[in-house]
């Protein structure tokens, strides 16, 4: 039996083939890349432990950017004296 290129069966076959590609990308290809290199594996473990939102793209989406903001502001607003000045 041949499947007509515009038939519903053909289109749904393509759809499920696409889903299979997504599934293999998520559960086979990416984990295999991670396992293939120490650098990838170490970074993956770090991301799991730190919980950093790697997929987000603006600073307000990322919690640690708030910490970086606070740390940077502190440095500029209350910069520790230099070593050669006398403590108060």
């Amino acid at each position: 039996m041949t499947i007509n290129k515009t038939s519903a069966a053909y289109r749904w076959t393509k759809f499920f083939a696409g889903l299979a590609i997504f599934w293999s990308f998520t559960y086979v290809i990416c984990p295999a890349i991670t396992a293939s290199s120490d650098d990838f594996a170490t970074m993956a473990k770090f991301i799991d432990d730190s919980g950093i939102e790697t997929g987000e793209f603006f600073y307000t989406d990322i919690e640690v950017c708030g910490e970086a903001d606070l740390g940077a502001r502190s440095t500029f607003e209350h910069m520790p004296r230099s070593m050669d000045t006398t403590p108060k």
């Binding site: 939102e53 790697t54 603006f58 600073y59 990322i62 640690v64 950017c65 910490e67 970086a68 940077a72």
Partner: peptide, 24 residues
């Protein structure tokens, strides 16, 4: 991407993350 910057910076050290995130 800012999220990737934060992760790459934090992976090195807190100092690197602070600078990387600030620039971003």
């Amino acid at each position: 991407a800012t999220g990737a910057v934060a992760a790459a910076g934090a992976f090195l050290s807190e100092k690197a993350m602070f600078v990387a995130a600030t620039i971003k």
